[in-house]
Nucleic acid binder design. Structure first.
Lengths: 344, 344
DNA sequence: CGAGGTCGGTTTATCGATACAACAGCCGGA
DNA sequence: TCCGGCTGTTGTATCGATAAACCGACCTCG
């Protein structure tokens, strides 16, 4: 910067002012500075700027795994949206573990990110607050037990109730809820209360209990596509067959579709299936997957708003935002015989 | 750091040495320092460290889009692998455009990343060299026209040849190559020579030409899942039917499966389909998708090796590495009637 | 016995940008 | 003529960590 200043015949401070726009500079000197910058190919050193300013312009995004459609699609949206605010995003993978998430929070502080978007599965609000200290954090994707951290959630209970409700309405009476913790442990808030699976399972259970003739079993095979496949196979081969499957994520649902197919069961002729998340792939599977679509865009907007707000005002009162949901019906729950227009 | 030094009764430099491990420190002072660090809750300021060291410990990863399975799965692998080298990864989305990629390279310099992994689709090696300057860059995923930049590629031509060969071997004679540029323009290196689609198309064409009775048409609908769906529908409704589809990416292939289903065509009974990339979803589609699996792990290892090498020695001779490939046969190309063990 | 090496530690001078206070002109009003 | 207020510009201290040189004290080896 000193070289540029010399070349333009001004002080370094003036160069700084031109480049950051913090203080007004006369048109002619400004032109001279920009000319010199161009000529010398100068670029500001972000490390030095960060050191002095105390901010980095980088926010962390911690997700359980990047290679899952829901999170990678979320990451894509968020990266793009935050770029418009002049913020870069670094992605951390937590492996869906408490330790991984704690490490991500620590990392964010060590690396002096300006903020962190944490898609927490293991950490509760208490932990987050304790670990984060003064780091702005927005929790994402599930209800936190305490109201002490900014949080963007989705309508887990309501969405899952609607999903299960759809199957019941379509005539299913013997359901499986894939991804659900044991049926009788849903009411305890769990380790840190409120993971998405528990809440969604709760919603599904509500719907089932509202129909006397209906029964359901809970299955928690894991969260991967392969887990869904395995689960679908087991369901198909089980002694007592099911006629409807509520999968608590689309990834599981897509796996279930595959698993059922392995065993020769047809969807929706023999079994109906509904998912949750509305990932891209759900619209293009065979059969296409009915699913609960949380308001992706609304949630991203809310995350950005809360994050910027807290970065601006660390003392702001924590806020919770819940996105809307829409139940999308596709082939996987159409009663046999009723066809549908292609593409939805 | 000064406070810690005071609390431990040593100099700041000793604290620095304890924390960075650059120079040996006696066991007792080390303990005293760590104690003070713990007690005061001290954390190093990375901005200051970066300023002084001239390195940031961050590398960029520029991909066309995060929400595509291939790239998000790649990103996941790379994030994880580079973490083991003590490097963080920030992800940029280029939108598959020349400008986006150029911006990513510029950004990497502005933000002083230590290196960049560039999954280039628009930029040629010449551009990369010019833009990158002294920034260590490893290009990924397609053959570069010139040998002037480190590059990890896959067996595009050979893999696609094998894929098309499989269909021909299975008796297909009227193929479609989805994602292929116009058949007669494959030999020109294009704008900057060697995008993956062109090379894969070349491979497919070679296989087709080797069988006199076989013919093929090229279709380039785009790269998204939806593009594949549309294409599948069009193929199904076309006046002259096809009996085999080579889709140049799995994402397109999965879309094609859906599009064909929309029109009532069955895979593999009416049409065989093969993809390329071996994304996770390919193993769990209905029918499961035969595909060309590039050596994912080998490629990631190669990227890491080349990147570290160049970061250590900017003057090293550029190197090219090509991964192996394996053709995985699944349901989508099994001749009708021949069933298969579940899971593959 | 002296040259040279190792060990654990300190001192000092940066890295590059920016906050802040100070200051030089200049204008309008008293 | 002088003064307060404005605009545009500059000097300088500072952000926090670390590379490099340096310092005793002790050891080794020819």
């Amino acid at each position: 910067m000193r070289d540029v200043a010399a070349a333009a015949g001004v002080s370094t401070m003036t160069v700084s002012n031109v480049l950051s726009g913090r203080r007004p500079v006369s048109e002619e000197t400004r032109a001279a500075v920009l000319g010199a910058v161009e000529r010398l190919g100068y670029q500001v050193n972000v490390a030095a700027r960060s050191l002095r300013r105390g901010r980095t312009g980088v926010v962390g995004l911690a997700v359980p795994a990047l290679d899952s459609p829901y999170f990678s699609q979320l990451a894509g949206r968020l990266v793009e949206r935050l770029a418009r605010e002049g913020l870069r995003v670094v992605v951390e993978q937590t492996g869906a573990s408490r330790e991984g998430e704690a490490a991500a929070v620590r990392d964010s502080r060590v690396n002096a990110y300006d903020g962190l978007v944490l898609s927490a599965v293991g950490l509760g609000a208490g932990d987050v607050r304790a670990l984060a200290g003064d780091l702005p954090v927005v929790a994402l994707g599930e209800r936190q037990d305490l109201r002490r951290v900014d949080h963007v959630g989705m309508a887990n209970v309501e969405g899952a109730r609607a999903a299960a409700g759809l199957l019941l309405e379509r005539g299913c009476r013997r359901l499986a809820v894939v991804g659900s913790p044991p049926w009788d442990r849903l009411d305890e808030p769990g380790d840190h209360g409120g993971d998405a699976f528990r809440l969604r399972a709760l919603g599904a259970r509500e719907a089932v209990r509202a129909v006397p003739a209906a029964s359901a079993r809970a299955l928690a095979p894991g969260t991967l596509l392969e887990d869904g496949v395995r689960c679908g196979r087991e369901l198909a081969l089980a002694a007592d067959p099911v006629d409807g499957v509520v999968a608590l994520t689309d990834t599981l649902a897509l796996g279930v579709l595959r698993g059922l197919a392995d065993a020769g069961l047809r969807v929706p002729d023999d079994v109906l299936v509904v998912g949750f998340d509305d990932v891209r792939e759900a619209s293009a599977s065979v059969p296409s997957l009915s699913t609960v679509s949380p308001g992706h865009d609304e949630m991203v907007e809310a995350v950005v708003r809360l994050l910027l707000r807290r970065m601006a005002d660390p003392a702001a009162e924590p806020e919770e935002v819940f996105g809307p949901f829409v139940l999308l019906e596709r082939e996987s729950t159409r009663p046999a015989g009723r066809s549908l227009a292609p593409g939805r």
